[in-house]
């Protein structure tokens, strides 16, 4: 469930999130014989989910204009998933951030992962994680008119 929830935060709708997580588990199963350290399994799955969500976002940009491609994202004004206005406002502001920043924020503030673990999942340096969080919070602060 935590992986589906993470995917929902990244792609916006549950049906797509379930597909992404399903594919992640499938990939995990194929890679299982080559996975030497069992304690890396969760990290592998998280990385697969984040990568899968990124693929979805790219595919959506390539698809035909003028049609609804998926369920309304949880952060949209029309979505009934998040009833509270404040939460939706925050998520809508997050949705306006660059993709990489959204991934890092979800891993940091939803899964509470330390920065070095986020760096390992995304294959980037800890410094990049740190600076991206700072910039993302600054951008959110401006957008939401709040101190970062």
């Amino acid at each position: 469930m935590s992986l589906i929830r993470l995917a929902v935060l990244l792609v916006g709708d549950q049906a797509t999130a379930e597909d992404v997580v399903q594919d992640a588990f499938l990939g995990f199963h194929r890679a299982w014989p080559r996975l030497r350290e069992a304690d890396k399994a969760l990290g592998y799955l998280r990385a697969s989910v984040v990568n899968g969500c990124r693929s979805v976002q790219r595919a959506r940009r390539r698809t035909l204009p003028g049609r609804v491609e998926h369920d309304l994202p949880v952060w949209s004004a029309e979505s009934a998933v998040i009833a509270e206005h404040d939460r939706r406002e925050v998520l809508a502001a997050v949705a306006r951030l660059p993709l990489r920043a959204r991934e890092i924020l979800a891993l940091r503030y939803y899964l509470d992962l330390p920065q070095d673990e986020i760096a390992a999942i995304l294959g980037i340096s800890r410094g990049t994680v740190s600076s991206t969080i700072s910039r993302a919070l600054a951008a959110l602060g401006r957008d939401l008119q709040e101190e970062p």
Binding site: V74, R87, V90, E146, E147
Partner: peptide, 28 residues
């Protein structure tokens, strides 16, 4: 933790909590 970070955590939790086992498709 800043208030903005608290709002962020709360918003993520709100969206994530809307996904419950009853709404997830069965694998089979």
């Amino acid at each position: 933790m800043s208030r903005l970070e608290e709002r962020l955590r709360d918003a993520y939790r709100g969206a994530a909590d809307a996904v419950v086992p009853a709404t997830v498709r069965d694998l089979g």
